[in-house]
Nucleic acid binder design. Structure first.
Lengths: 114, 114
DNA sequence: GTCCTTCATTGATGTCTGTCAATGAAGCTG
DNA sequence: CAGCTTCATTGACAGACATCAATGAAGGAC
């Protein structure tokens, strides 16, 4: 599982026939979002409006063990939706600009795109 | 697992703090989309442009056993994304109008909505 | 240097899920 | 009616995944 490119723009679901391989790529990104705790993480990051958020802020909100929080963040990073930044002994996370937009576009109707 | 209402409009992720319960509702819908075969089904339905599609058309495209195809369609129906219609001995499926739009709106940025 | 804090990783465990083969139910056709 | 077609459901099984507790790694404070 190398680094997944975030969904290619101009590849909406309504476009041409979706083969197994392309579907698998899309699946990887959507799977990263298909978990309630990770949705809450994305929710926090959206509300932070671009600001990076420290791991220590997620933990009390999610009420999960520290290791589990770290796991969820890793999943989001590997999906290309979130990026990590180290500051001293802490880690800060923020949304990759435009990543969620790409997800949104996948479900756009079959009209003019990009 | 009773019938899931499709995501409420005006409930974007960028809105207020997402609790466990709300996150679980969203999770259910996105989980239904987080499978490559179901993505391909949605892809076919989008390309059908509102027309209902027979099960027997999905099967050769997906190259899965008939029972598995039936399973995937059931998941999409229970998520509120797709609806089933019986004609004689056949079943036809189509996208629930607006359902994907609701998914899209969930990932909208924190600006003007609805 | 030693200690503490913060985070990542590992290993273990129980649950969920995608798949198939087999069976069941419901509608046509003759 | 009997037989056939189409689809849904069931049972079984392997693989994936969310979670925790425990351990490891790296940076700051003293």
């Amino acid at each position: 599982m190398s680094d997944l490119p975030v969904i290619n723009c101009c590849t909406p679901l309504a476009g041409t026939s979706l083969g197994e391989k392309q579907a698998a790529g899309l699946e990887a990104v959507i799977k990263a979002l298909a978990d309630r705790q990770r949705l809450r993480i994305v929710n926090m990051l959206l509300r932070a409006d671009g600001e990076a958020v420290c791991v220590c802020e997620f933990e009390p909100f999610l009420e999960l063990s520290q290791g589990t929080v770290s796991h969820h963040l890793k999943v989001l990073v590997e999906a290309g939706l979130v990026e990590r930044e180290s500051r001293g002994t802490r880690s800060y996370f923020s949304l990759v600009p435009g990543a969620l937009d790409s997800v949104r576009e996948v479900f756009a109707p079959a009209v003019a795109r990009c």
